[in-house]
Amino acid sequence: MLLIPCPHCGERPEIEFRYGGEAHVARPADPSALDDEAWAAYLYLRNNPKGLHAERWRHIHGCGRYFNVLRDTVSDKITATYKAGEPRPDLPATEAAE
């Protein structure tokens, strides 16, 4: 079970959270300006990296807030968590992503 540091509540076990998919996929400001292909990419195309992944989690059984997590998909190691809206920290990929 992952131990996830919620930026609002501190370290809590995974069962208090719900996964929210890839982070930093912003909804276009004017969706009507997008052609079908660009809109489909926004709707459906997501990264699936082996290594560091920026993803959203919601502390659903806690503060209820969405926040972002940098997690290594190989080792499950969490290198950073930060509030929704903040930029992704510039961290080098961990050794497990080699």
């Binding site: 929210g20 909804r27 959203r56 919601r58 659903i60 209820g64 807030r65 969405y66 929704a84 809206g85």
Partner: peptide
């Protein structure tokens, strides 16, 4: 509710 919270918190804070 989760759908609403998602948009409110992350798209239109």
């Amino acid at each position: 509710l989760a759908h609403m919270e998602d948009y409110l918190q992350t798209e239109w804070p």
